[in-house]
């Protein structure tokens, strides 16, 4: 109960302080709109905002699915060959540490001229890929040594060892990485839309950018709120999935 009450109370207090600050400090509405104005803008533009959110979420989930598939597959290859891991892991690290904002324009030039959607997915994938690879690799390496011995003693095949030992061992690691990569895929999609600008992107970031250009600050806020809610929903969706799959292990 406290888990719900405390953040709810903090949220209400924040709204109250926001409203009071605008009145006390006489902040112009084109700098900080009132909560009611944001609320009104949200409902006035509900259709277009939700449609734009749908486009952003589509990119997010395609990129996340690709990140899960590629991250898991590469982690499996790493677990099969130490040499392969030593050869290619540094490249994965390079992908992770290079700021996505600096890579995005290049991706848009290479891929996005004719297919902006593909460029957006690739950029969001770049953001989401590494945590899945790193966590899955760690998960596959954390097999219980004694269980591994038992599988050897009882003559387990390579497939049995993977499917009945390595995969379930790595599952908590994969689920934890989904909570991180889900949010990163959304951030990647938004960054990609900002960089793409008016070059064909139709997502929520583009709507926020468009509202900014027209000084519709309350609409920008409405878009940001929707984006935050989407991020929170993704996080709690994967938290619930993690709880459901691992509930008997706790």
């Amino acid at each position: 109960m406290r888990k719900v009450l405390l953040p709810s109370a903090a949220f209400l207090l924040m709204i109250f302080l926001w409203k009071v600050s605008i009145e006390v400090f006489e902040i112009p509405k084109f700098i900080l709109p009132t909560p009611e104005a944001v609320w009104a803008a949200f409902f006035a533009n509900f259709g277009s905002l939700v449609e734009a959110l749908g486009a952003t979420l589509k990119v997010t989930f395609i990129a996340l699915s690709a990140a899960v598939f590629s991250g898991v597959m590469l982690a499996l290859l790493f677990s099969l060959s130490r040499s392969f891991e030593m050869t290619f892991y540094p490249f994965a690290v390079v992908l992770q540490v290079t700021p996505i904002v600096s890579v995005a324009p290049l991706v848009l030039i290479w891929v996005g001229i004719d297919h902006v959607d593909r460029a957006l997915v690739i950029i969001a994938w770049l953001a989401a890929f590494f945590p899945i690879l790193a966590n899955m690799s760690a998960g596959l390496r954390s097999v219980d040594r004694h269980l591994d011995d038992l599988f050897t003693l009882y003559g387990a095949s390579r497939w049995q060892r993977f499917w009945r030992l390595s995969w379930p061992t790595a599952m908590p690691y994969l689920l934890a990485s989904l909570k991180i990569s889900g949010g990163l895929a959304l951030i990647g999609a938004v960054v990609a839309e900002f960089v793409a600008g008016s070059g064909g992107a139709t997502g929520l970031a583009w709507r926020i950018l468009e509202a900014g250009n027209r000084l519709q600050v309350e609409k920008m806020f409405a878009g940001l709120v929707l984006l935050s809610l989407a991020g929170v929903a993704i996080f709690y969706f994967f938290t619930a999935l993690e709880w459901f799959i691992l509930r008997r292990r706790k």
């Binding site: 219980d144 004694h146 269980l147 011995d149 038992l150 599988f151 003693l153 009882y154 003559g155 387990a156 049995q160 009945r164 030992l165 379930p168 599952m171 008997r248 292990r249």
Partner: peptide, 27 residues
Amino acid sequence: TGFVFQDAALMPWADVSKNISLPLSLR
């Protein structure tokens, strides 16, 4: 041959019956 380690080395994702039947099920 059966092997018992210092830690129980059970599969946390499997119930007692599945843990016990591991040697047979692998065959």
